[in-house]
Write a protein that binds this DNA or RNA. Structure first.
Lengths: 133, 133
DNA sequence: TTACATGGTGTTATATTATAACAATTTAAA
DNA sequence: TTTAAATTGTTATAATATAACACCATGTAA
């Protein structure tokens, strides 16, 4: 067996916000999330950001740093929470999580000149998606 | 001969801001830049952001997306403006630009399942630097 | 030369993204 | 069952970034 993951169930706010992001076909921004969950009683930015922080921490969602937006993890979750790669279309802004064994192996084993080894990485590719090409 | 780059000289604001970033041992944030150049007559955020945008565009500086901070390019500049990789220490926040031929070749040639080819990427590694280990 | 296109500047105002601080409550464990 | 840890709700505010508009400098074409 590889890694053990205690499956903490999500709290109410976390679940509401995860469900919303998970259903979304595109990355969602924090204040758009806030707007969408206000009817469910989540009224303040902090409530959103706290849930987002937690969801990122446990690997259920990822932050697309270049877009300040959040997307649900589609790589069988937690295992890759610390090793993320995305493709981003610069025209339509479609974002796709990349799952390539080759890529993740390569990056996980990458050592720089100082022999520094990394516990985590985030890679964002930019280009044109099929549709926009 | 490989690629031709017309060397547009920097404008006054661009030069002031580039010099500041270039001298800085660590990535600088926009409002810290603003504070530091106010004595030179740059008074508004927009003046800073405009210069930053341009400097990023021409490859003189890079944005560290996960930190919202800017660092001067140390990879003989423009060639790699669209292919950036950094190592970030999660304790002391030291950021170093990675120049690895292997890595950049690997990423430049990476194709995902859809055969999508990318014009650009940004990679951020996280870990502990020598000092902090 | 004139005109006109392009890119840069200066300015005010505002939008967007994110956190501080504090009190109350829930949950999980010891 | 009391204690520690995490979560919540709330108000206020910090930090990051852009919109809109008027003006100016420079290069190019008529």
């Amino acid at each position: 067996m590889k890694t053990m993951h205690k499956e903490h169930p999500l709290t109410k706010n976390q679940q509401i916000i995860f469900d919303l992001i998970d259903k979304s076909p595109e990355p969602m921004k924090a204040y758009s999330i806030l707007f969408n969950v206000q009817k469910k009683g989540i009224k303040a930015p902090l409530q959103v950001y706290r849930a987002l922080d937690k969801l990122v921490e446990i690997g259920k969602i990822h932050k697309i740093e270049s877009r300040n937006a959040f997307i649900a993890c589609h790589n069988s979750s937690c295992q890759v929470a610390n090793a993320t790669a995305f493709s981003i279309c610069e025209v339509c802004e479609k974002v796709t999580e990349i799952s390539s064994v080759g890529l993740s192996k390569y990056l996980a084993n990458f050592k720089d000149k100082d022999g520094m080894k990394y516990s985590k990485y985030n890679l964002e590719f930019f280009g044109l998606c099929k549709k926009c090409r």
